[in-house]
Design a protein around this nucleic acid. Structure first.
Length: 315
DNA sequence: CTTATGACCTGATAGC
DNA sequence: TGCTATCAGGTCATAA
């Protein structure tokens, strides 16, 4: 379910809470969603001063002792904190519960819920071990991707761009929603060959990826169905989607009817006019095609915030 | 090696 | 109302 912005919102809403709490106990309701968990310590019981990191769509809870627990929300996962004395909002599909403590007082509970069970948790003796076993296999975090690095990661792949952008080994954090949104903002078709981007196109795409992800984080993420942040709040960014979920409707930039098709088994939506599938070899910095209004003008959507200083995403 | 495909799950919704 | 089919934000193993 959650892509980078949603996972980052979960991280931010939990960071301060976890930093000043200790894990008093943990309960694993389903063993099959947990990996490498042999005892309570693997679930961070006894750990305090928890840090919460993120790479792409994955989270890591790291105790002061160094023990690390990777949490992947998969498609339908939630990591939710509930204050002391409050009952859980939902108890179905709750696979793990951590009982927290603040000094002598109860510190509430942290819950991992995942109806579809595409997510899970992975325990490691250290954050270095987690990095080595999991995060080293991912591409660079999409929130900080540069044009040069994006182009390098795409290499000479013949796959459609959409397909390459969804590959977490190329770039970590982009999923179906933000791939389509970024490609639309960049004016590049999802069908273009991944390895055939010009430096100018790669630059537009990298900027579009970073800015759409930042905007989405500012908007609290996209809540389409059941995404909630770490304290149970829904996001608002779905109201700013320009192509995702709008198949058959008109392009908000040029009023052309949006095209849609399955690419890499995922529904993809794009504007055939703003995002031509042929590379017209335009000079660097050129807006994709005549007839399209300049980006951010006349579409009723502000691009403010695109150039704000980059917020921290770790620690 | 790269790329494509189906499998893994549950729940919401549309259509009959 | 109740049934079935389809679709959904993500990976993973396996096959081509």
């Amino acid at each position: 379910m959650p892509e980078l912005p949603e996972v980052e919102c979960v991280r931010r809403t939990l960071a301060a809470l976890l930093r000043c709490r200790r894990v008093e106990g943990a309960r694993l309701a389903r063993r099959d969603i947990a990996h490498g968990v042999r005892g309570p310590r693997d679930l961070l019981v006894g750990s305090e001063g928890l840090r919460i990191d993120r790479h792409g769509k994955q989270l890591a809870l790291v105790g002061a002792s160094g023990r690390a627990l990777c949490v992947h929300l998969g498609m339908s996962g939630q990591l939710l904190w509930t204050p002391p004395g409050r009952r859980l909002a939902r108890t179905d599909h709750v696979h793990a519960v951590w009982r927290l403590r603040t000094g002598d007082a109860p510190g509430g509970r942290l819950v991992f819920r995942d109806p579809r069970r595409f997510g899970g948790i992975w325990a490691y003796p250290s954050s270095a071990a987690l990095l080595e076993a999991r995060w080293s296999r991912l591409g660079p975090d999409a929130l900080t991707i540069s044009a040069e690095e994006l182009r390098r990661r795409l290499g000479s792949t013949r796959r459609p761009l959409k397909s390459a952008l969804l590959d977490q080994r190329v770039l970590a954090g982009v999923g179906n929603i933000y791939a389509d949104e970024a490609l639309h903002r960049a004016g590049i078709s999802p069908l273009r060959e991944g390895g055939a981007l010009s430096p100018g196109e790669a630059s537009r795409l990298a900027q579009a990826i970073v800015s759409v992800l930042r905007q989405a984080i500012d908007g609290g993420g996209s809540t389409l169905r059941d995404y909630l942040n770490g304290v149970g709040e829904a996001g608002e960014h779905q109201r700013r989607h320009r192509v995702y979920g709008r198949r058959g409707q008109l392009c908000l930039r040029c009023r052309t009817r949006l095209a849609s098709d399955l690419i890499a088994q995922r529904m993809s939506v794009w504007c055939p006019r703003c995002q031509p599938s042929e590379n017209h070899a335009l000079p660097e910095g050129c807006v994709p095609r005549a007839g399209c209004a300049p980006r951010g003008v006349g579409d009723g959507l502000s691009t403010m915030g695109d150039r704000e200083p980059q917020p921290p995403y770790s620690g």
